[in-house]
């Protein structure tokens, strides 16, 4: 038990380093600015939104039709349900045939769902 916690503690230390590591060049960049080596001269044109050299038209933050919210729903279903299979997979040694049959029924239900989505054109772009 202690060992598992130690492993996660190691990951926590790695997390801290992972945050520090990319900050270093940014801090260096900032330090160069302080020493006057890096320019910072924003003006109206530079801090415009880039849109190929012309002014942007209309707001960007609008209700955006990405036509894939259905896929997002299917993703949630799939991902959540597939996670249930992981414990079963690890425990297959002890449940053997019963476990396999259960898993197959589970996958069959998932697969039927996919086939249904496909037939109902939910996987098409339009």
């Amino acid at each position: 038990m202690d060992n598992v916690l130690e492993q996660y503690a190691h990951l926590g230390i790695l997390l801290i380093f992972a945050a520090i590591f990319p900050s270093l060049p940014l801090i260096a960049s900032w330090a160069f600015f302080k020493f006057g080596l890096r320019p910072r001269m924003p003006n109206a044109v530079k801090s415009d939104t880039y849109e190929c050299g012309v002014e942007t038209e209309g707001p960007t933050w609008v209700q955006f039709n990405f036509r894939y919210y259905l896929v997002a729903l299917i993703f949630v279903l799939f991902d959540v349900e597939v996670i249930f299979l992981f414990p079963l997979a690890v425990a297959l040694d002890s449940v053997v045939v019963t476990g396999m049959v259960a898993a197959l029924i589970f996958i069959a239900v998932l697969f039927l769902g996919l086939v249904y989505e496909w037939r109902r054109q939910a996987l098409e772009w339009r």
Partner: peptide, 12 residues
């Protein structure tokens, strides 16, 4: 309910 977005491709 979605709104069209105008995107400029070009001049740059």
């Amino acid at each position: 309910g979605s709104e069209p977005v105008v995107v400029n491709l070009g001049p740059q």
